[in-house]
């Protein structure tokens, strides 16, 4: 008995070490980035990047915080896009996912197919680009960042799974009482599926905040840069930023500070909604 107990202890110890190393690897690049943001420029130039800076400096952050027109404007654009993206995308996704969960909805098959087909086949980047720019005239329009991402097929199917998990019979009695479908959706189906909707909301926020490709394709004036695009074009931007400021933090510390600032909101969102995130990931796989 004692032997088996110590064996269990050894096994658990090995497990803790193995998974601890895994967690460490997951975290290390971010830790390094954060410590680079606190290194002075000369220290990076002389000693390379270090986990513990030789010379501490908060210059990277002071330069960023002083510069309202650049990074904070991009922050504003990203917040704007994420907020309106979340609201509109959530409404559109809920509206289409609910009918697809009604078992005997006559157009269920065809609508599902129309949504699903876009996951399989696309007209390609070039025609999407030409169509959006030449025919819809959405180049350098902030709403292009919102509308092009408004419906993600996988979110529709995930939310449909959540809706389907509630027995139809609950809605059936409301139908017999003459409740309209909109009333059933907003008074019953949606409130009963709040966890599912939060999960989808989390995916939507993540997707809007981290969307770089739409900006790279359709935005080329700096006033409309979202954060990710500003990061992409950082080298031009940092030249503006540090022009004539005398002593400079290294480009690298500024860049890493921008990365940290761009990432922190998502980490906060994740911390608060971790439970829903895991549920969303696993509900597609476990039936």
């Amino acid at each position: 008995m004692v032997e088996s107990k110590s064996k269990t202890f050894t096994t658990q110890l090995i497990l803790w070490v193995a998974l601890g190393i895994f967690a460490l690897i997951s975290l290390i690049p971010l830790v390094l980035a954060i410590s680079i943001t606190f290194s002075s420029g000369e220290s990076v130039m002389q000693n390379g990047y270090q986990f513990i800076p030789k010379e501490w400096s908060v210059e990277a952050y002071t330069v960023l915080f002083k510069n309202f027109d650049g990074i904070w404007r991009a922050y504003g654009v990203s917040l704007f896009v994420t907020f309106f993206g979340l609201v509109s995308s959530l409404i559109v996704t809920v509206l289409i996912a609910y009918p697809l969960s009604v078992a005997d909805f006559r157009y269920r098959g065809i609508v599902s197919f129309v949504v699903f087909f876009t996951m399989m086949f696309s007209g390609g980047t070039i025609s999407y680009y030409i169509f959006t720019v030449k025919y819809l005239h959405l180049k350098n329009n902030i709403w292009v960042l919102v509308v092009t991402q408004i419906l993600v097929p996988s979110n529709v199917f995930l939310l449909r799974t959540f809706f389907s998990s509630i027995p139809e019979s609950i809605y059936e009695s409301a139908r017999l009482d003459g409740a309209s479908e909109y009333k059933i959706l907003f008074r019953m189906a949606a409130p009963l599926n709040v966890p599912g909707i939060i999960t989808i909301g989390l995916f939507i926020v993540l997707q809007y905040w981290n969307d770089y490709i739409t900006g790279m394709l359709f935005i080329d004036i700096q006033e409309l840069y979202p954060l990710q695009l500003l990061l992409y074009r950082y080298s031009n931007y940092i030249k503006d930023l540090t022009y004539g400021t005398g002593s400079l933090p290294a480009d690298e510390s500024l860049l890493m500070a921008m990365c940290v600032i761009a990432t922190v909101p998502m980490l906060i969102v994740f911390m608060f909604f971790q439970k829903y995130f895991v549920r969303g990931l696993t509900s597609g796989a476990v039936k």
């Binding site: 559109v92 157009y107 309209s180």
Partner: peptide, 10 residues
């Protein structure tokens, strides 16, 4: 009615 809900997404 259910079909009208699909319109924005479609």
């Amino acid at each position: 009615i259910l079909l009208t809900m699909c319109i924005p997404g479609l």
